[in-house]
Design a protein around this nucleic acid. Structure first.
Lengths: 212, 212
DNA sequence: GTAAGCTTTTACCAACCGGTCAAATTATCT
DNA sequence: AGATAATTTGACCGGTTGGTAAAAGCTTAC
C-alpha cells in the first residue's frame, strides 16, 4: 500500500529523485511552451515518458508541479541581480549584469518563458513571490544604483526603470524568440544574434544612440 | 433557416456589425488575459453578454474569432513603426517612435498582451504574418535607420536590435504590468509610472547611462 | 399582415481533462 | 527466499469544453 507519497517521505529514494527530476524537466518543457492552463498532465506525462497516474503519484496535482517548478527556478533566475555588487565598479557591474541576463536568456529560455507566461496572465500563482522576495531584492538593488547615480559614477536615472529595461531587453530574446527569428530571417538563424544583441545592448546602455 | 452565417453574407446587417463588435471586444478581454488555449468560448460569451450558441452563430469556431482579432489588431499595432519617416529628423523620429510605442502600451495593453501570449507560445496562429508583412516592414525601416547611422546622425548600431529594444522596453509596461506594479508598490500605482518610464527611456536611448 | 429570412435559445454530444482507485508489478530488506 | 514496502498501470469518474441540431422568436420587405 502506497500511503506515503513521494513528496511526503522523510528519506527520498534514488527512484524518487530521478523521477521527480524527469517530471520537472518535462513540466518545464510543457508549461513554458503552453502556459499553465494550456498544458495538460497527459502532455507532461508523455514528455516524461510515464503514465499519467504514475506522474500523479509523485505530484498530487498539476498545481503542485507548477509551484515546485516556479520555486526552484525563481532563485536561480534572480541570481544575476543578486550578484550586483554595491562595492564594485558601477559601470562594470551594470555591464556584467546585462551580459549575464542575456546569457540566461540564451541558455535558459524555457525558464524565462515559464515566468513570462505566468506574469503575462496576471501572475495568479506567484503574486506573493512578486510582492515579497522580488520586490525586496529590487528595492535593495535600486538603492545601490541610486547611490551610484549620486556619486556621479553613472548618469542620474530612475533605478527601477533601469532594471525593467534590462529585464525586458534581455528576456525579449528568450520570450519572443520566434518573432526575433522571423524578423532576422534565415541569415541570423544561428546563435550569432546573441552576440549582436550583446554588442548592441552594451552600446545602448553605456553610450545611448547619439553620437558622442 | 440560417444557412448564411454572419461572416459569409455579402451585406452585413446592423445587428451583425454590432454583435460582431461586441464579441471581438469581449474576445480581446479574454484572450489577452488567458491566452488562446486558456480561454473558453463560454468566458467570451459571458463577457459579451450572450449565449454560447449565439456567439457561435457569428463566429463558427474559437479559431475564427482569434484570427479575426489578430488581423484587426496587427495593422494598428504596427502603425507607429510604419510612421517612422525616412525624411524626418533621425533623433526626433526615434524619440517619437519610442513615445508612441509607450503610449500604445499604456492605452492598449490588451492588444499588446494578445500578441505577447501568441508569440510567447510559438506564434502557432500568426507565423505567416511574422515572416511576411512584419519582416518586410522591419526590413524596410531597418534600412532607413541604417542610412541614418551612415550619415552620422545617430551612432552606428544594429538597426534590428534597436527596434527589438524599443519593442521590448515599451511593451514591457503592458505585458508585465502586474510585475511592474508589484515591484513599484502602492506608491506608483497610478499612471505616473508611464511618465517616469518615458523620461527614463528617452534618457536611455538618447544618452545612455554614462555621464556625458 | 404575412412570408421569408435572420437571430436566439434549449437541449444535447463526443472528446478531453484533472484526478481517483484498486490491483498488479517491482524493488528492498532481512 | 520471502515479507514488506514502493512503484506502476488500466479502468474509471465527474466536470468542462468546443461545437451541433432543431426549433422558437424576431425583423424586414412587400
Amino acid at each position: 500500500m502506497a500511503i506515503p507519497r513521494a513528496a511526503q517521505t522523510q528519506r527520498r529514494t534514488r527512484i524518487q529523485e530521478e523521477k521527480e527530476e524527469r517530471i520537472l524537466e518535462a513540466a518545464l518543457d510543457v508549461f513554458s511552451a503552453n502556459g499553465f492552463r494550456g498544458s495538460t498532465i497527459d502532455q507532461i506525462a508523455e514528455a516524461a515518458g510515464m503514465s499519467k497516474p504514475n506522474l500523479l503519484y509523485y505530484f498530487r496535482t498539476k498545481d503542485a508541479m507548477h509551484r515546485q517548478l516556479i520555486d526552484r527556478v525563481l532563485s536561480t533566475w534572480l541570481e544575476p541581480l543578486r550578484a550586483l555588487d554595491a562595492e564594485g565598479n558601477p559601470e562594470a557591474e551594470i555591464r556584467s549584469y546585462i551580459r549575464r541576463k542575456l546569457e540566461m536568456a540564451r541558455d535558459f529560455p524555457r525558464e524565462s518563458r515559464l515566468f513570462a507566461n505566468e506574469v503575462l496572465q496576471g501572475a495568479p500563482h506567484i503574486e506573493d513571490e512578486l510582492k515579497g522576495p522580488l520586490k525586496e531584492l529590487v528595492d535593495e538593488k535600486a538603492e545601490v544604483i541610486r547611490s551610484w547615480t549620486r556619486t556621479g559614477k553613472i548618469a542620474k536615472c530612475d533605478p527601477y526603470h533601469l532594471i525593467f529595461s534590462i529585464w525586458s531587453t534581455t528576456q525579449h530574446y528568450a520570450d519572443f524568440d520566434v518573432q526575433v527569428r522571423a524578423v532576422l530571417g534565415q541569415a541570423y538563424a544561428g546563435e550569432g544574434r546573441f552576440e549582436d544583441a550583446a554588442r548592441f545592448l552594451e552600446q545602448l546602455f553605456m553610450g545611448g544612440l547619439l553620437p558622442r
